[in-house]
């Protein structure tokens, strides 16, 4: 399972990177989202998968999956939501102001 997950994460990273390297702002944002999915899966895979029951004491199981990566990812998901929102609004604003979403055309002047 872990090995397969590693490959899956690698694919996510590769696709995300390719999207980030394109010119369209929307594609770049899509790329970051995919990479962040990859990161979340990476963290939880590193914590060990299926090692025990869910980290809920109420269920009465004796061994639990590592809860720390889960807490980390929970934080990461919410932060990722905020950063995606900022990204979106930034690209939206820059499109409105500059009239393009092509990063190649957003080059500043020579003197900037």
């Amino acid at each position: 399972m872990e090995s397969l997950m590693s490959i899956l994460i690698g694919v996510f990273f590769a696709i995300g990177t390719y999207l980030i390297l394109t010119k369209s702002l929307l594609r770049i944002i899509l790329g970051t989202s995919i990479i962040s999915h990859g990161v979340h899966l990476l963290i939880i895979t590193m914590g060990g998968v299926k090692a025990g029951g869910p980290p809920l004491l109420g269920l009465g199981s004796t061994s639990f999956t590592d809860a720390l990566p889960q807490a980390l990812i929970l934080t990461a998901i919410v932060i990722n939501f905020a950063t995606t929102a900022i990204f979106l609004v930034l690209s939206y604003r820059s499109y409105k102001v500059l009239g393009t979403d092509d990063t190649a055309q957003m080059r500043g002047n020579e003197d900037e």
């Binding site: 809920l56 004491l57 109420g58 929970l74 919410v78």
Partner: peptide, 8 residues
Amino acid sequence: HHNPGGGF
């Protein structure tokens, strides 16, 4: 507090 859920 005891089951899946919480502030977020």
